[in-house]
Simulated scan of single mutants.
Amino acid sequence: MDYFKKGAEIEISSDEDGFRGAWFAGTVVKPPAKKKNKTLVVVEYKTIMADESGANPLRETMDVLQLRPPPPRERSRTFQISEEVDAYYNDGWWEGVITEAHENSRFAVFFRTSREQLEFSENDLRLHREWINGNWVPPLEEEKVKTEEKSAVDVSSVFSEGTLVEVSSDEDGFQGAWFAATIVKVIGKDKLMIEYKSLRTDDDTDFLREEVDALHIRPYPPETVVVDRFNLLEEVDALYNDGWWVGVISKVLSRSCYVVYFRSTNEEMKFDHSDLRLHQDWIDGKWVKASQALEL
């Protein structure tokens, strides 16, 4: 909430047809104020006008869940084919995938939502990032290097055969989720063979096993204090499709039922209390609650 003070630079998402998946630059006009089950913010767009004259920027009252700070951007980078990017188009940033590299630093970008492919200059692209738990994922390249250096420890000193862990994935449709698994074998300093607790092989004859990089593994989260109820805007993990997905409580329906908003997919889903847990992050070898992570 500290990010959305009056005058703060922000990016705004929209639920309107034709605009889903895009982010538009704006500023905060009035800071967050609670109204019923929502926290609302008055914002002003920088590139979208209220009328055809183009003299008055559009102002709207938005749910705070549709806002984020402007993402960081590398001063210079070389984009690669298959890399996820945001492309500046029609006054906003739209998520796509680089499919072709052309001459003069131009790239073809495919947009899954519209099934279109358009060409952009390098200056109109940025690496796609998600705002998760008060942090940008992935971080800037220099920050990523620091993180990898911290994580580049001999995993044999941390994990052993039979250890219960959680595993993340970079595959489309699974990003942002953590799946319970057991260490089967430590292969090297940074590789492990794991067996999932809930994911099964294609023929459904056994639990899935695969070799995983140490950067995608963390210890199984510790038991947290039993929560009688979750609060509005509280960060939680929701159990869905055999994994734990990070989200935010967007509606409190009752003491045992909630609506959770997922930033990565811009979706809301209903969950029972028993399928939620307080969100924690594994940072520098320690478990940190979401409220603490925002302070780091």
Rank of each mutant, 00 (worst) to 15 (best):
57 P>K: 06
133 N>Y: 12
63 D>S: 09
120 F>K: 02
61 T>F: 05
127 L>I: 10
110 F>H: 15
72 P>I: 02
114 S>A: 14
49 M>W: 11
141 E>Q: 11
140 L>E: 03
76 S>I: 07
131 W>N: 08
148 E>A: 09
147 T>V: 11
110 F>T: 15
152 A>Y: 11
108 A>L: 02
153 V>W: 02
43 V>L: 05
72 P>S: 01
43 V>H: 06
43 V>I: 15
139 P>M: 06
62 M>Q: 13
118 L>T: 07
129 R>F: 04
79 F>C: 05
54 G>I: 08
137 V>P: 05
57 P>M: 04
80 Q>G: 05
84 E>A: 04
48 I>Q: 10
133 N>T: 14
68 R>Y: 06
73 R>I: 11
155 V>Q: 10
46 K>M: 11
137 V>M: 13
150 K>Q: 11
95 E>K: 15
43 V>N: 05
95 E>T: 14
83 E>S: 08
89 Y>A: 08
53 S>V: 07
107 F>K: 00
40 L>Q: 11
138 P>M: 08
75 R>L: 01
50 A>F: 05
140 L>S: 02
49 M>N: 04
155 V>E: 05
99 T>K: 12
153 V>Y: 07
64 V>T: 07
42 V>L: 15
143 E>T: 06
62 M>E: 14
88 Y>S: 00
113 T>Y: 08
112 R>C: 12
127 L>Q: 04
97 V>C: 14
111 F>T: 06
127 L>H: 03
63 D>Y: 03
86 D>E: 12
54 G>V: 07
92 G>Y: 03
103 E>R: 12
153 V>T: 06
72 P>R: 01
75 R>F: 01
67 L>I: 06
52 E>Y: 11
126 R>G: 01
48 I>G: 13
126 R>L: 00
147 T>N: 13
142 E>I: 08
92 G>I: 03
70 P>V: 14
47 T>P: 05
71 P>N: 07
79 F>W: 10
151 S>W: 12
91 D>Y: 08
153 V>M: 05
109 V>Y: 03
145 V>R: 13
49 M>P: 09
61 T>H: 03
71 P>L: 10
108 A>W: 00
77 R>P: 01
129 R>L: 02
55 A>P: 01
88 Y>G: 01
62 M>G: 03
45 Y>L: 09
111 F>M: 02
69 P>V: 03
154 D>F: 06
135 N>L: 14
123 N>E: 15
48 I>R: 13
120 F>C: 03
78 T>A: 09
54 G>R: 05
57 P>V: 05
73 R>C: 13
71 P>W: 10
109 V>W: 00
59 R>H: 08
134 G>N: 05
145 V>M: 12
111 F>A: 04
51 D>R: 06
47 T>I: 00
90 N>R: 15
146 K>G: 09
47 T>H: 11
62 M>F: 08
114 S>G: 09
102 H>F: 13
74 E>S: 04
130 E>S: 12
147 T>E: 14
87 A>D: 01
141 E>N: 09
